[in-house]
């Protein structure tokens, strides 16, 4: 029962970040929203792994965290001085 409540709350957080990504007036707004949504999704994947009792979700979450970091740094470098 608690797992479902926690999953719904984290999912509402991801949806709020995605709304800001659609709405955001400038490009850095969208980049910040995507970065936050990715970090929230990493925690969501770990908690889904606990809910389904599958440990493969932890590996998926680790790879997702690494790719998020590389993507955020690449977007920041592009916004700063171009490709």
């Amino acid at each position: 029962m608690e797992e479902i409540v926690f999953l719904v709350i984290i999912g509402a957080g991801v949806i709020l970040c995605l709304l800001r990504m659609v709405k955001g007036p400038t490009a850095p707004d969208r980049a910040v929203a995507v970065d936050t949504a990715s970090t929230v999704t990493t925690a969501l994947l770990v908690f889904l792994g606990y809910t389904f009792k599958r440990s493969i979700y932890l590996d998926v979450s680790l790879v997702y965290a690494v790719l998020t970091f590389i993507g955020a740094v690449a977007i920041a470098r592009y916004l700063e001085r171009g490709i």
């Binding site: 400038t26 980049a31 970065d35 740094v73 916004l79 700063e80």
Partner: peptide, 23 residues
């Protein structure tokens, strides 16, 4: 995973803030 997030999340947000200031 937790220590990795704790190390890399401030770095990426600092890069984004610097980029949005400079752009």
């Amino acid at each position: 995973i937790a220590v990795f997030i704790l190390l890399t999340n401030p770095i990426s947000s600092h890069a984004l803030g610097r980029a949005s200031c400079k752009s």
